[in-house]
Design a protein around this nucleic acid. Structure first.
Lengths: 147, 147
DNA sequence: TAGATAGTTGACTAAATTAGTAGGTTATTA
DNA sequence: TAATAACCTACTAATTTAGTCAACTATCTA
């Protein structure tokens, strides 16, 4: 159960933009240095973010990226969707009608995995970019003591 | 944000064992056929499950695997831990003191990712194997409508 | 209008991980 | 003692990830 670096980077870079791009556009070289992410990789990510209209761009000197909405209107789930970071725990294909593991019917655990996806999705949908820039604290949620 | 097949298989196979192994040990060939999982792969998985004492084995003809506890005492998180399916969304190493992306300090999103891990962990910790054998329903939890 | 800046695009690739396969050994029981 | 089924280790093919590289286009400023 992991997140891809792309997903982590996308959220981190959006927080960076939200934080440093309030008055002036942020160019990716700066984001790259501040957050320690490869510039070329950032370019790919911002390509997706722009297509999803989460950011807008300005070419040329002094240009860069800015948020396209208030950070209080951008949900983390929006960022995940933009870069196609799917929340996918079931074994079946994208078609919701398709069966699990090619057996022609739902596997014994299908509903459970769907619920897990729901739990994760609900959470990502409930957190806004503005929550992160405000210094989201660990005490905001109970943590599980695993093991 | 995905689960590995190993993780999916482990939970599915445990449900299978819980369901079909009540009176007699389940041999993995049968599980393999019923759940459509490679036998050799199942063997590896059950090796881990046994080490974690979630199942016990019986060699020889008529042998197989059975649960080592009541299914109402086995949490899904236990299964994840047994096969080392980690819930890991932060970018930093295993050492909790280590920094994110080698910068020597926590990244801007660190707390958020930790919270996400907590949300997932709490959920997996709250569901028992017995919930799944009882026909866990999608209506047990609210689902998010994403996109 | 030249040159620098910064976004845009697409093709390519090394490394890591996943998802197995293959082949044998050991223990048990009928 | 033959069949069964767990146990164990090494290997590998495929996929995904996490980038790199190279070129192009738009825009601003001097």
């Amino acid at each position: 159960m992991k997140i891809t670096s792309k997903g982590r980077y996308a959220v981190l870079a959006m927080v960076d933009i939200a934080k440093f791009g309030e008055n002036t556009p942020c160019n990716l070289s700066h984001v790259s240095v501040r957050q320690n992410i490869s510039l070329s990789y950032l370019e790919q990510i911002f390509n997706d973010l722009k297509k999803a209209k989460l950011v807008k761009s300005q070419k040329g000197p002094g240009g860069g990226y800015r948020l396209n909405k208030e950070s209080s209107e951008i949900r983390i789930l929006d960022i995940f969707n933009a870069i196609d970071e799917q929340i996918k725990t079931t074994g079946c294909g994208n078609n919701p009608k398709s069966s699990c593991s090619g057996t022609g019917q739902k596997c014994l655990t299908h509903n459970f995995w769907e619920n897990l996806e729901g739990v994760i999705g609900n959470y990502l949908n409930s957190v806004y970019l503005s929550d992160l820039t405000a210094g989201y604290s660990i005490s905001d949620e109970r943590r599980v003591i695993s093991e």
